[in-house]
Amino acid sequence: MVDESHARPGSLLEVLLQSFKSGQDTQRFLNHLVIITMDPQAFEYCRFLHPHCIHPSTFEPYFSTKRQSITSPDHSVFSWRRNNVLIDVIELGYNIIFTDTDVLWLRSPLENFDPSYELSISCNFSSDGERTYSMEGGIFFMKANAAALEFLKHWKLSMFLYLRPNAEESLCETITQNVDIADAYGVRVHHIDRNQFGGFCQLNNDMFETVYTIHANCCDDLTSKVHDMTIVLDDWIRFRKRVKNNNATEKMTLRWPQKCIG
């Protein structure tokens, strides 16, 4: 899901699509990648880059307000729009791999998703100084069945009944805080090793050797995200060339993050 700030020249959408083209066994996903645009400007630019863009009018009830940045007051509105879309797609009977725009796809993640579970997800942890939150790693798989659908509907209903902190917009936090409810609906959760789905919050020099995706988390500024994600993608391309030339044993020092710090 993208808005104008995510889909314009030099934006996150360009880097995301390039990662699919440069990843290992990821190009094939492009024909299955549907991008939902939140405003007419995003739609026009998305259509220039990718064949499968959905016009904002398709989801008119959800997209009446644009989200300007990930730290804006509209962030919660954006998250609930996403959940409405999940409900619609699950009702149509389609399994979903949902990816945030600030995720680089380096390898096919399919082997990490267990189709016998309603949800396969990698969760990271962050703290605001008072409590620790369980946050999504930028990608998850959801199975289209009655259990998943009813849980999503319960989650949507609870938004209107109870005030929630922003962290509970996270699917990871929702599952963590509602284990009994998930069990009651029969929602089985496969927690993927978070070391397989990397991010700027948890860095190590062996990431290219082990991870399937890299999430530009711990970074609020969109310009900084694009800058550092571009460096990651350039380094990934160099790493793949080294592997091809049998020079993979030569370690690559991380050049990132540079602007996504602090």
Score class of each variant (00 low, 15 high):
residue 33 L to M: 07
residue 33 L to H: 03
residue 34 V to N: 09
residue 35 I to N: 11
residue 35 I to R: 08
residue 35 I to W: 04
residue 38 M to W: 15
residue 39 D to E: 06
residue 39 D to I: 03
residue 41 Q to N: 10
residue 41 Q to V: 11
residue 44 E to R: 08
residue 45 Y to M: 01
residue 45 Y to L: 00
residue 46 C to I: 03
residue 46 C to V: 05
residue 46 C to D: 05
residue 48 F to C: 01
residue 49 L to H: 02
residue 49 L to Y: 02
residue 50 H to R: 08
residue 52 H to W: 05
residue 53 C to M: 05
residue 53 C to W: 02
residue 54 I to W: 13
residue 54 I to Y: 11
residue 54 I to A: 15
residue 56 P to M: 10
residue 56 P to V: 02
residue 58 T to K: 12
residue 59 F to I: 10
residue 59 F to D: 08
residue 61 P to T: 03
residue 66 K to N: 11
residue 67 R to H: 05
residue 67 R to S: 10
residue 69 S to D: 10
residue 70 I to T: 09
residue 70 I to A: 12
residue 76 S to F: 00
residue 77 V to N: 11
residue 77 V to F: 13
residue 80 W to V: 06
residue 80 W to D: 06
residue 80 W to I: 07
residue 80 W to F: 11
residue 80 W to C: 00
residue 80 W to N: 05
residue 83 N to F: 05
residue 83 N to R: 14
residue 83 N to G: 03
residue 85 V to L: 13
residue 87 I to G: 04
residue 88 D to N: 05
residue 93 G to T: 02
residue 96 I to W: 08
residue 96 I to T: 05
residue 97 I to Y: 10
residue 100 D to F: 06
residue 107 R to D: 02
residue 110 L to E: 14
residue 111 E to D: 15
residue 113 F to T: 01
residue 114 D to I: 03
residue 114 D to P: 09
residue 115 P to W: 05
residue 116 S to I: 02
residue 116 S to M: 11
residue 117 Y to Q: 07
residue 118 E to A: 12
residue 119 L to M: 14
residue 119 L to V: 15
